[in-house]
Design a protein around this nucleic acid. Structure first.
Length: 468
RNA sequence: GCCCGCUUAGCUCAGCGGUUAGAGCAUCUGGCUGUUAACCAGAGGGUCGCAGGUUCGAAUCCUGCAGCGGGCGCCA
């Protein structure tokens, strides 16, 4: 059979508007399973457009059984032409009665790693190139796509400008982990200056260059002219974190708004997360139901709770009091001034509040230089959003817009002001209060999918010592 | 970076000092009046992660290494 020249319908389209009576149809996809009896064979076909599979019936008097058994194995790519018929009295609403088929690419069952059974996520990580063949990853990647679209929709319909901040940067954005250095210098024989230092003036940019750890500093500059902006792109951290929540390359969303103070930004962050949770529930019902059944029985109630319940807002100081009164025996002692540990955050979210918590006004000593100093002289206008299961999902702050205060803080920390000339400049000319936050896309997806390892919510993961 | 655990058939696992190492699923062969995680019968498939050590004897105990997973730290 020749390959049909017209694009066939996707299975999603077929299931969305099933035929009332039998009609000719061409479908394309990959074989998920096959069952054979004496007179007929059944093939379940998937094409990635929906989690549902189309049952294709091959009568052996029409299509030889020997050919079906030799070719239609799990994973084989095929085009099938036949009669699409409604089957209201069967478990599936419709099926395709095959007339003929074309085998695009076979899949040798003795070597093809995927079987018609559930595989462990750990095993699938070893064959990341085949993960898109599985329903779990089809659900995850479709959800990732939809959430990415929803993120743009949210900001675009609220007057934000999508800005592309550089991936290659000269500056080491303080307090955001270690950087990947980018160079064209020969690593085997790095040119050195007489004093032994690397001769960066001979490197590609004539100075050190890194992969960005955050678009925030540039977003701030753009917000100082465009008003409300957001970035949405890859971010790189060379921190060797060996946890299920960290990647070396991950995607981050960073809105930055002129004239927003801390409270307005916290309102935005909460509204934003509620919007995305609602979007997932209404547009990805099928995927969420599948993921809930497979991985996290409590998934839907948890997402519902994010949509419904107002997040609990507590100042850092209140949190310290709550933790001290909790009667819990924490491994890390609770005292004002020390950072909240994972165990503290978990108690707060999962036992005390039982819903998302926003903690604000952290001690200045444990936060980044750019966060706006509060009048009390002890705290900065920062906030974290803590989610059940995930922990920190958003970190943000009002930025220090006062030139003198900012410079004094940077000097206090012994920072070199030179690389921050532009950043400081916007504080000298027409400076205004402004704020922003960063949302980790993969962490949000952990929450929405019920999965527990960020390597499973990005198609090809890059983590310390691992490149899928 | 620190701590803990795991590594046995293609996959998921059992066996935890004593003959030729097992199960389910997958694969292959045959059967079955439409199945739907199909079913029934049979077959093939393993240097028990790698390297040392202890022992009459090691998949099993010890040491080192590697890979993977988890906890903590750092953070998104």
């Amino acid at each position: 059979m020749a390959v049909a020249s017209v694009p066939g319908k996707t299975l999603a389209e077929l299931f969305l508007s099933p035929p009332r009576q039998a009609e000719p149809c061409v479908v394309r996809g990959w074989v998920r399973t096959r069952r054979t009896t004496r007179t007929v064979s059944f093939v379940e076909l998937q094409d990635g457009s929906t989690l549902r599979a189309l049952q294709v019936v091959f009568a052996h008097d029409r299509v030889p059984r020997e050919r079906i058994e030799a070719e239609l194995h799990t994973g084989a790519a095929v085009e099938i032409a036949g009669l699409l018929v409604p089957t209201p009295d069967r478990p599936q609403p419709l099926e395709l009665q095959a007339e003929r088929y074309h085998l695009y690419g076979p899949a040798d069952p003795t070597t093809y790693p995927l079987q018609k059974k559930a595989h462990s996520l750990e095993f699938l990580r070893e064959i990341a190139h085949l993960r898109a063949r599985t329903r779990t990853f089809q659900a995850v990647f479709r959800l990732r796509s939809g959430i990415s679209f929803a993120i743009h929709e949210y900001f675009q319909t609220r007057g934000f400008v999508y800005v592309h901040t550089p991936i290659l940067t000269p500056s080491d954005c303080e307090g955001a982990g270690q950087l990947f250095c980018v160079t064209t210098l020969p690593l085997a024989q790095v040119p050195k200056r007489p004093d032994g230092q690397v001769a960066y003036e001979r490197d590609f940019f004539g100075r050190p260059a890194y992969l960005t750890v955050s678009g925030q500093l540039e977003a701030e500059l753009l917000a100082m002219g465009l008003g409300k902006v957001y970035t949405f792109g890859p971010t790189f951290r060379a921190e060797p974190s060996h946890t299920p929540r960290h990647l070396a390359e991950f995607w981050m969303i960073e809105p930055e708004m002129a004239f927003y103070d801390l409270a307005a930004t916290m309102d935005l962050a909460e509204d934003f997360l509620k919007f995305l949770a609602r979007y997932a529930l209404t547009h990805y019902t099928e995927e969420l139901a599948f993921l809930a059944e497979r991985y996290e029985p409590n998934l839907l109630p948890e997402i519902e709770a994010v949509v419904q319940a107002p997040f609990l807002r507590l100042s850092y100081t209140e949190v310290i009091e709550i933790l001290q009164k909790s009667g819990k025996n924490f491994t890390f002692p609770v005292s004002w001034g020390s950072d909240l540990q994972a165990e503290h955050e978990r108690y707060l979210v999962e036992e005390y509040a039982r819903k998302p918590v926003m903690v604000y006004n952290y001690p200045r000593a444990i936060k980044a230089f750019y966060m706006r100093q509060n009048e009390d002289g002890a705290t900065v206008a920062s906030f974290d959003v803590l989610f059940p299961r995930i922990g920190e999902i958003i970190g943000g702050s009002q930025r220090e817009e006062r030139y003198d205060v900012l410079v004094r803080r940077m000097q206090e920390l012994g920072m070199d002001l030179f690389p921050y000339k532009g950043y400081l400049d916007i504080r000298r000319y027409g400076s205004v209060p402004h704020s922003g936050f960063g949302l980790g896309l993969e962490r949000l997806l952990l929450f929405l999918t019920g999965l527990t390892n960020v390597r499973d919510v990005i198609p090809f993961f890059r983590a310390a010592g691992q490149m899928a």
